[in-house]
Amino acid sequence: MGPFLQEVSERLAAQVGAFDPEISAYAAEALQSQGKQLRPVLVGLSGRALGELTEAHVTAAVIIEMVHLATLVHDDVLDEAQMRRGQPTLAAHWGNDISVLVGDCLFAHALKLAASFPTTEVCRAVSAATNTVCAGEILQTRQRRNFNFSRDEYFKVVGMKTGELFALSCDMGAYLSRASAAQREALRAFGMALGTAYQVYDDCVDLFASEAEARKSLGTDLAKGKLTLPVLLLLERVEAAQRQKVQDWIEHWRPTRLQDLLQLMARYEALEGAQAAIQSGLQEAKAHLRQLPASPSRQGLEGLADLLAQQAAALRHPA
């Protein structure tokens, strides 16, 4: 994927020229915050699993990565995050007002690129996915500090917020390689399962990693009252009196409570429960790939799931 990802990065950086010169510095900062390039990787591997990669695949990867970066800009505003990928967030650097508008510009430009395809299929799929991602963020925001929030509702939200763009990446890679309907559906299902597992992992990182390891602000979920899977598992497992105590901590959150919360999580094996959910989701993801012909790119997709499984298994309760 090296040459493909390099081309995606170059094309993404070149999009700065499409913005008004007076705001190009903001756009450049947002577009330069690429991380693991997971979504472009999924476009490339899915496309190559069923055919040859073309300029259309590069454009699709640029579009999806731009939508993803726009969601990160908005997430950092909502979470009041100061760090992202080892650097100050756009909001920390330029303020919330500018950051929200820069995110809006990225969304709009991504849809403009999607509309450049000779078919409406790409624009329709990108627009629908963007709608789903934003709807997922709204649902999560509405559920802050809602202690009746269920695991099923949690998985619905993370599927919408993160799984959807993974699914779109796989689907567009397959579509642009002229995949059959069954192959597109299999790859979309793989992406959804992988993306959902990835978000559960990321939610665990917010509690069980260090800022140096994660390269972003940690503890933002608890500070904003987001009930992630480890917290939900803890609430399910503690006795009634302790449950009320945990709810009070989250309702009136102070960072000094984190160690007490982590001790309870260790006692009730909340991390282990979340890790089991991640591993189950990744097994489901790999099962969908059996519908594809054997190839190095299919092995690459399986390898992504295996890598995430290793990273999730490596998480530990703080000493």
Rank of each mutant, 00 (worst) to 15 (best):
G2L: 12
E7P: 03
V8G: 01
R11P: 02
R11A: 15
R11W: 12
Q15I: 08
V16Y: 09
G17F: 00
P21T: 12
P21C: 10
E22K: 14
I23R: 14
A25F: 15
A28P: 01
L31P: 13
L31C: 13
K36V: 05
R39N: 14
P40H: 03
S46Y: 07
S46T: 03
G47T: 02
L50K: 03
T54E: 09
A56L: 11
I64Q: 00
T71S: 15
V73M: 15
H74C: 06
L78I: 15
E80N: 15
P88G: 06
A91L: 04
A91E: 13
A92E: 03
N96K: 11
N96T: 13
D97Y: 10
S99A: 15
L101M: 14
L101F: 14
D104H: 00
C105D: 02
L106V: 09
A108P: 01
A108N: 01
H109G: 06
A110P: 04
L111H: 09
K112H: 13
C123Q: 03
A125Q: 03
V126Y: 06
S127D: 03
A135W: 10
A135F: 14
L139V: 12
T141K: 06
Q143K: 11
Q143E: 11
R145L: 15
F147K: 09
F149E: 10
F149M: 13
E153L: 13
G159K: 04
M160L: 13
M160V: 08
A167D: 08
S169D: 07
G173I: 06
L176N: 03
A186H: 05
A189V: 03
F190N: 05
L194I: 01
Q199E: 12
S217V: 08
S217G: 09
T220S: 08
T220F: 06
G225A: 07
K226I: 01
L229G: 10
P230G: 10
E236V: 04
E236Q: 15
R237C: 07
V238I: 12
Q247F: 08
W253C: 04
T256G: 01
Q259W: 02
L261F: 07
R267A: 14
R267F: 03
R267G: 04
R267L: 01
G281Y: 12
G281N: 15
A285S: 12
A285K: 08
K286I: 12
H288L: 03
L289W: 05
P296Q: 07
Q299T: 11
Q299L: 11
L301G: 12
L307N: 12
A313T: 03
A319V: 11
